[in-house]
Design a binder for these strands. Sequence first.
DNA 1: CGCTCACAGTCAGGTTGTCGGCAGGTGGGG
DNA 2: CCCCACCTGCCGACAACCTGACTGTGAGCG
Lengths: 220, 220
Amino acid sequence: MGVIGVCEDQEAIRKVLLRGLRGAGHDLIVAHTGAEALRSFGADAPIDVILMDIGLPDSDGRDVVQALKSVGQDAPVLFLTALGDTRDKLQGFAAGADDYVVKPFDLAEVLARIDVLTARRGSRGATVGGLVLDPVAHAVRSATGEVMLTPTEFRMLAAITSRPGEVVRRRTVVAAAWPDGSYVSENTIDSFIRRIRTKLASIDSPTGITTVRGVGFRVS
Amino acid sequence: MGVIGVCEDQEAIRKVLLRGLRGAGHDLIVAHTGAEALRSFGADAPIDVILMDIGLPDSDGRDVVQALKSVGQDAPVLFLTALGDTRDKLQGFAAGADDYVVKPFDLAEVLARIDVLTARRGSRGATVGGLVLDPVAHAVRSATGEVMLTPTEFRMLAAITSRPGEVVRRRTVVAAAWPDGSYVSENTIDSFIRRIRTKLASIDSPTGITTVRGVGFRVS
DNA sequence: CGCTCACAGTCAGGTTGTCGGCAGGTGGGG
DNA sequence: CCCCACCTGCCGACAACCTGACTGTGAGCG
């Protein structure tokens, strides 16, 4: 379903979480400490939801989340913690939480809440600024026409349009359009971007792909 | 802040909610029964978040929510209910909930959760004195416009705005914006400050970077 | 089997934006 | 008044990016 970044130091809890998440069909990126989370959950990691403990051995999960946000990681965050006071919760939300669950938690509920968080960002746009992406026909439509896209072109464009207005990093695009672990030269990305741009122009698309130097691409 | 649709039949709870929501600066559309909610919360009602009780006198809040979704109302839904079993919660999420809070609830927490739901559909980013830094888009926004920043510019501005009102030393800025151990001439810092100032001016930013002679910079 | 076509990926050359620094001007504090 | 910190305009180097042409591969077809 999605890629979940899990940061939890206690082995027993981690085991329960990992099994539950895998059972629900999620892919996982696991960290045991705040420092590890900072390394593994970078802005270019294709993470859909972050599950974060607050009481980590090396740091405060809230600080970790704020650090991640400041480097551009914008995946929604669910705090999973023993701190259940209202004040703790408010601090969690202030630190950028999208949800907050108090231990001991019920696995099924956590899974449901994760579904909500993943769905909320996925549903953000079959149609973006006068452009309609048709996954069945592998085509894009605008007011004035329609073009076919090749499979790779389609996956790339889908990755970029899935976040209208946001910059999508080149690595993220690669992760979305090519199978895991495959190497593609930077130049290949450029070529595909060019082809997509040409096709979009051929149907007088109102929105185009703008490049953000040193970062990636963005629909505007 | 936003328009909240509240559907709650019990007067005591409703009163607490209404006062709290108004106090937080929200506008309200109030319903006392499911039927009233269906009438008032239509697809064209400009609602940002729906606060729904489940145990309504005339109907089940979950059915009401599903009916609203089927007519195109897509505002996020927060269920506020006495039913706290895991099974109840799962049913709530299955019915389309974005969040689920069990009574007795803490008003401050509910307000925080509402903020999350409204913020997710609006603009994101830390806001400092009328300026919004968006790490995802690599941009700064003011009331009148938006500019893109280059990676280095963004890191510098982020370092300075991270401590509003305080003076940030030149060394601190360098440490935040350049890789460890790299030497940059004092003049280079000035150049970047200048570029950032120019970009901020181009969007009529209400706050600017003031220099503190011999120490560093500060947002005012 | 050989031809054609579409797609993926590469290469080389040109173009542009970012970075970092220089040189000269400006202004405030001693 | 002088010095030093800072401002400003400007320029060169370099990397990132764009562009058009080209190669390799595999499917479809007569």
